[in-house]
Simulated scan of single mutants.
Amino acid sequence: MAEEDLTRTRAGATGPASHRASGTPARHRSTLPVPARVRAALRWLARFRQRRRFVLEGFAAIACLAVLVSYLATEPDPPGEGGTRPDGLPAGIGRPSAFPGAELRPPATGPASPGLQPRQRPPSPTPSGSAIPGPPVRPTLTVEQRDVPAQVDLTASGSRDWIHWGLRGGDSTVRKRDGSGELVDAGGRGVRGGWDANQETVSWRDGAPVRSADGTATGVYTCGAGSGFTLAVAGAGEARTVRLYAGVWMARGRLEVRLGELSRTLRMEDPHTLRSAEFTVRFQAPKGTRVVLNWVAEEVFTGECGSVSLQALTLR
């Protein structure tokens, strides 16, 4: 018995010849029957592994779908009807490259404005560079009187406009060629007559219908108390200077200048002979208004046509 056991032990230690030749240790498979509880546990383990594989594959599919959706969100939207996208932009316009996935929004227009319909925008604010109306023009008016220079250059004195009276009789007037037209002869009371005995002379180089004159002493006059001339100057919103060249013959003349509620009055008289003056009117008047000048014989000192006379009016 002992020898038999020893022989089995040696055979187990060395193994069959085939195993020794290959170098692979011998494997013994049990021939005992597997209990039912063990088989059930093995089946449960196999099902658990299969479910875990399904769950992992599902998570992988969801992750791939999320990546695809994110990629599609960065692509240009498909064109809508009429070649435009649903958001109203032309087809083919994508989102800004610096902000992937960012929605295109209209420029900010300030605080929300209630009552607007869809796609309406509140009015744009006035650009900072636009012209803003200035404050209203405040009327100003001053009147001065001085002796007339021996020679008056209407072209220099009336850079904007001028009028001369009496060159060819009582109804004759010469105006500045291409003048502004701001000076107006509004008539007056009395019959006008022409004369050529003024103490001072005037000249011009830009007149119409007479182009030029060199030292004419002509003018117009009207006789009797209350007779005279009414002139006007249109307001332009800017400061202006008007010069009136006028005189009296054995009379007292009154110059009344009115701008709205503003008025100035000057008088000049000579009971024996003639006298002339240069009246300077400086004013600023809003557009649409006028400065009115009334040069009237307030009193005459002779029954032989005591009068007031008018020679020229200039504007600069």
Results as ranks from 00 to 15, higher is better:
residue 220 V to P: 04
residue 287 K to P: 11
residue 119 R to W: 12
residue 86 P to D: 11
residue 307 S to F: 03
residue 234 A to H: 07
residue 235 G to A: 07
residue 125 P to L: 11
residue 5 D to G: 02
residue 156 A to Y: 00
residue 61 A to Y: 06
residue 221 Y to R: 07
residue 143 V to W: 12
residue 236 A to W: 07
residue 205 R to M: 01
residue 74 T to S: 02
residue 146 R to N: 03
residue 136 P to H: 14
residue 18 S to W: 05
residue 107 P to A: 15
residue 83 G to I: 08
residue 61 A to Q: 11
residue 138 R to Q: 15
residue 196 D to T: 06
residue 138 R to W: 03
residue 167 L to R: 11
residue 239 A to V: 05
residue 170 G to Y: 02
residue 41 A to N: 08
residue 233 V to K: 00
residue 113 S to P: 00
residue 108 A to H: 11
residue 103 E to Q: 12
residue 3 E to N: 05
residue 197 A to F: 12
residue 153 D to I: 02
residue 13 A to N: 06
residue 94 G to Q: 07
residue 283 F to D: 11
residue 125 P to N: 09
residue 213 A to M: 04
residue 2 A to N: 09
residue 54 F to Y: 05
residue 160 R to K: 12
residue 111 P to W: 13
residue 98 A to S: 08
residue 47 R to T: 12
residue 157 S to G: 09
residue 274 L to S: 15
residue 206 D to I: 10
residue 218 T to P: 01
residue 283 F to A: 13
residue 152 V to N: 02
residue 56 L to I: 07
residue 62 I to N: 07
residue 135 P to F: 06
residue 237 G to S: 05
residue 24 T to Q: 04
residue 36 A to W: 03
residue 49 R to G: 14
residue 247 G to C: 02
residue 21 A to H: 02
residue 77 D to R: 07
residue 134 G to H: 05
residue 259 L to R: 02
residue 25 P to E: 14
residue 314 T to M: 03
residue 243 R to E: 11
residue 87 D to I: 12
residue 29 R to G: 14
residue 302 T to W: 05
residue 24 T to W: 12
residue 42 L to K: 00
residue 43 R to C: 03
residue 143 V to P: 08
residue 191 V to N: 04
residue 297 A to E: 02
residue 165 W to M: 06
residue 11 A to Q: 04
residue 96 P to K: 03
residue 180 S to A: 10
residue 2 A to E: 10
residue 68 L to K: 00
residue 103 E to R: 12
residue 59 F to G: 08
residue 83 G to R: 01
residue 37 R to C: 07
residue 237 G to I: 09
residue 52 R to M: 15
residue 196 D to S: 15
residue 40 A to T: 14
residue 148 V to D: 03
residue 44 W to Q: 14
residue 161 D to N: 06
residue 47 R to L: 15
residue 112 A to D: 15
residue 15 G to M: 06
residue 101 G to N: 08
residue 15 G to P: 03
residue 147 D to A: 05
residue 165 W to I: 01
residue 24 T to E: 15
residue 47 R to Q: 14
residue 188 G to D: 00
residue 103 E to M: 08
residue 184 V to M: 06
residue 53 R to H: 10
residue 123 P to C: 04
residue 232 A to V: 11
residue 56 L to G: 14
residue 161 D to P: 02
residue 176 K to S: 00
residue 59 F to N: 04
residue 200 E to N: 12
residue 303 G to F: 00
residue 241 T to W: 00
residue 197 A to R: 07
residue 316 R to G: 15
residue 239 A to P: 06
residue 126 T to F: 13
residue 212 S to P: 02
residue 35 P to H: 12
residue 288 G to K: 01
residue 25 P to G: 13
residue 101 G to R: 03
residue 274 L to W: 12
residue 117 Q to H: 10
residue 127 P to E: 10
residue 104 L to N: 00
residue 192 R to F: 10
residue 231 L to G: 05
residue 241 T to M: 01
residue 252 R to I: 01
residue 113 S to W: 14
residue 244 L to I: 05
residue 203 S to P: 01
residue 126 T to Q: 14
residue 73 A to Y: 01
residue 201 T to P: 01
residue 115 G to E: 07
residue 131 A to G: 03
residue 246 A to W: 07
residue 71 Y to E: 13
residue 215 G to T: 01
residue 265 T to N: 00
residue 136 P to R: 10
